[in-house]
């Protein structure tokens, strides 16, 4: 294994991670909700009375994050570099949408919140999607 020192950004990674942790902690303590993006979005696709507004307000905040942060601290945002072609993007979206709903969570719900509450179920889910992510990148970058 070789470490990519030129792209390694431990401090911004840690700072951003701490913000993710604070947001997740505030959400469960103040609102009594688990911060899982796939569950929050997926729950909107089957409209239930009285259950939609908190999801909408959370997502509204999420959507306004780039505009507000670029006003406050533009230097903190790095432009995304996307290698995948359109076909791969569509396939990826379908797999992520289907998989996160079947598995009841994604990187936020299982990875951050689930591990934080020491859930064995979320640990299994996190190990599964990490392993699958490692394997997929290995196949694409080193076998194909």
């Amino acid at each position: 294994m070789t470490i990519d020192w030129t792209h390694f950004t431990p401090w911004t990674a840690l700072a951003g991670g701490i913000l993710l942790g604070i947001a997740s902690a505030v959400f469960i303590l103040v609102n009594g909700r688990v911060l899982g993006i796939s569950g929050i979005l997926g729950g909107l696709l089957v409209p239930r009375r009285s259950d939609a507004s908190w999801r909408v307000f959370f997502l509204l905040g999420l959507v306004l994050a780039p505009a507000t942060l670029s006003l406050l601290a533009p230097g903190l945002i790095s432009a995304p570099r996307i290698e995948a072609g359109n076909l791969a993007i569509v396939a990826a979206g379908l797999l992520v949408g289907l998989g996160t709903r079947y598995g009841s969570g994604c990187t936020s719900g299982h990875g951050v919140c689930g591990l934080s509450r020491l859930s064995p179920r979320s640990l299994v889910a996190t190990l599964a999607f990490m392993a699958s992510g490692f394997a997929t990148v290995y196949v694409i970058r080193h076998l194909l």
Binding site: L95, V96, G99, A125, A128, A131, S132, G133, T136, I140
Partner: peptide
């Protein structure tokens, strides 16, 4: 479900 999600994430 999680394995499927991971494949899409890696893609």
């Amino acid at each position: 479900g999680s394995l499927t999600f991971g494949a899409g994430w890696g893609l």
